[in-house]
Design a protein around this nucleic acid. Structure first.
Lengths: 219, 219
DNA sequence: CCTCCACTCGACCAGTGTTCGACTTACTAG
DNA sequence: CTAGTAAGTCGAACACTGGTCGAGTGGAGG
């Protein structure tokens, strides 16, 4: 007779895997931020000795690489019909928007972006971008893809740094210096992040579309 | 009689100042990178005990803030004639180009950009950008300024991370995975950084110009 | 039964940012 | 000229970090 009791052998506690490590790392980062991610703390949350982690992972940097790629994995890939309905910008907007959203959902990721993005999830998204731009008519999609990723990364970094550490003090700071920085004090303060992001993305896409038509000759 | 010997009182060794600390920090960062910047090492180069630094500076983060702002100080501000000859894009291109160059001259700065840029040098450059865009006709210059800074920051971060850690291995890595990432493998590899940057900046500025004319109604 | 091997972990190392309290100057007031 | 005060210096120490070493564990295969 088969019951829970007859097979107590396997895994009274789930064994440690790379997947569990990464998932716990993401959770810890979400809760406490990048400064508080420590191999020892991570190990403790996994009910393990800290040195055990080093059997699954070579360095702490590996953990961060994996955690970051996990975030990229949250970005849904738009469908790949070609030609896309709604114009070539449609899927690009979708990808970029999802990209931004994922990074903002895990603000620590913005402080970790200064490393090569070679994880499978990141590569898959980049590949999608290149493919979409090629299909749109860019013979050399690199500058377009480059611009778009730079724009997302940059905007997330900017938004996170200001949102995180601000808490109101900056307004006063700039107001006091309005004489020295008049335009900045007048226009720089309202943080309508989403709208600003969309507007800027519009600039980029419009410019790219223009370049496309200039090349094609079509209107 | 006045000679070197008659006034040995003052500063046989130059006293420690904030300026000297920052300058030495920048030098150390240039030579060895951000990971090797240590309060102790910095102090050693300044012929001081490490704890002395803490009289001039509250935390190591302060040092980084100051060093970063020193980099921004290297960016030459374009002349401020209005209207600028060569179109409104002229001074903007100049500022953005200088901005990028300064950051690339000190690659460590790219890994330090995840903090509020509130130093006087950074503020002055941002103010210039806002003013130039306002003068160009943007009633709300924020999205434009936001896009441009995001673009510079992002591109510097990307370039630095790839330039620093690559050393050739990435090409093979992507070539091996060409089946999975065909577009990326085909178009993603040539790193003509400057040209790519200029092209992308063109997209942005063109899109912004378009928005301007749409608003103005003029061609 | 023994051997092997994936896996775990306690002890330890060199090094980190930062604090504390004592010390040395250099000028100022009496 | 002396006493006092403030600016500036610094050695010792603290709690903590990422990482290594080698000794262990337990279960599967012969």
């Amino acid at each position: 007779m088969d019951s829970v009791w007859s097979r107590p052998k396997k895994a009274p506690r789930q064994t440690l895997t790379l997947g569990r490590i990464v998932a716990e790392a993401v959770a810890l980062l979400d809760e406490e931020g990048v400064a508080r991610l420590t191999m020892r703390r991570l190990a403790e949350r996994l009910d393990t000795g800290s040195t055990t982690l080093y059997w699954h992972v070579r360095t702490k940097d590996d953990v961060l690489d994996l955690a970051l790629d996990a975030v990229f994995g949250e970005v849904r890939l738009p469908s790949r019909d070609r030609p896309p309905e709604g114009g070539w910008q449609r899927p690009v907007r979708e990808l970029i928007g999802g990209w931004r959203a994922a990074l903002l959902r895990h603000p620590w990721s913005a402080t970790i972006l200064d490393r090569p993005l070679m994880g499978p999830n990141a590569l898959e998204r980049t590949e999608f971008l290149y493919a979409a731009l090629s299909a749109a008519g860019f013979a050399a999609p690199k500058p377009a893809a480059y611009s778009l990723s730079n724009y997302v990364m940059g905007s997330v970094v900017m938004q996170v740094t200001w949102q995180d550490r601000d808490e109101g003090g900056t307004g006063d700071f700039l107001a006091e210096r309005a004489a020295r920085y008049p335009s900045l004090a007048e226009h720089g303060l309202d943080h309508a992040w989403d709208a600003t992001f969309e507007e800027g993305l519009g600039y980029l896409l419009d410019g790219m579309d223009q370049a496309l038509h200039r090349r094609t000759g079509a209107p």
